[in-house]
């Protein structure tokens, strides 16, 4: 901790505009869509489908952007190596900012997990129906009852896992803010983040050991 001042940092625009718009649209759609699924009603179930499609579209966009977006948004930056992850985990508890030029390694994995969960959620949704509300996804007629039941079970479990991931996400942000004194919300709004000058944009290109170790 005493070496805190050793790491030279600079302000860099790590999050490009499409990534930021994606992020806040997804956050809104997941919150509203989740609510409309959990408390689905006769008059609102179609809205649940609508938000589900929007989420499916956003996830598809994000995967595409993972190939063409700014360095920190690339999938190659999110696919961290076990070594990078382990190195980072060793220092994650230290009460100082990571100054990471993008998602820190653990966060990268959680982004991938959440995108995968949402993709499964939007896909299973297409095939299931609610027999009490007489409404279902556009492909609900194309599978037999048993398969549909299994997919509905996956949709249900998926909705719990998504909730858990969102909670974890918020806790992590609080942990960074309070314990590590690093603001992660501001950069996702403005795009600008204070990062280590020696840090390449893609997290797995960086050496996670710094002068402090």
């Amino acid at each position: 901790m005493s070496e805190e001042g050793v790491t030279p940092t600079e302000l860099r625009r790590v999050w490009d505009l499409p990534t930021r718009l994606f992020h806040w649209s997804l956050a809104t759609c997941v919150a509203v869509g989740w609510y409309l699924g959990e408390y689905r009603g006769f008059d609102t179930i179609e809205l649940h489908f609508f938000f589900g499609y929007a989420i499916g579209g956003l996830v598809a966009f994000r995967i595409l952007w993972g190939f063409v977006g700014a360095p920190a948004s690339r999938l190659s930056a999110l696919l961290v190596s076990p070594a990078t992850l382990l190195n980072y985990l060793r220092e994650i508890g230290k009460p100082r900012p990571s100054y990471w030029a993008g998602h820190a390694p653990l966060g990268s994995l959680s982004v991938l997990a959440l995108l995968a969960l949402l993709a499964v959620q939007a896909t299973t949704g297409l095939f299931i129906e609610d027999d009490a509300l007489f409404a279902g996804g556009p492909l609900s007629g194309s599978v037999d009852a048993k398969t549909q039941g299994t997919l509905a079970q996956i949709h249900f479990i998926g909705s719990r896992l998504i909730l858990a991931m969102v909670a974890l996400h918020l806790l992590a942000i609080a942990f960074y803010s309070i314990w590590k004194e690093e603001d992660l919300i501001g950069p996702m709004i403005s795009g600008w983040k204070k990062v280590r000058t020696d840090h390449k944009a893609a997290s797995n290109e960086a050496t996670s050991t710094d002068a402090a170790d």
């Binding site: 006769f42 609610d130 009490a132 509300l133 007489f134 009852a145 048993k146 039941g149 949709h155 249900f156």
Partner: peptide, 16 residues
Amino acid sequence: GESCGACHDTYRAKSF
């Protein structure tokens, strides 16, 4: 419809 669903969500399994 919502009262059918309230019972199903609590007392009926999604899958066979």
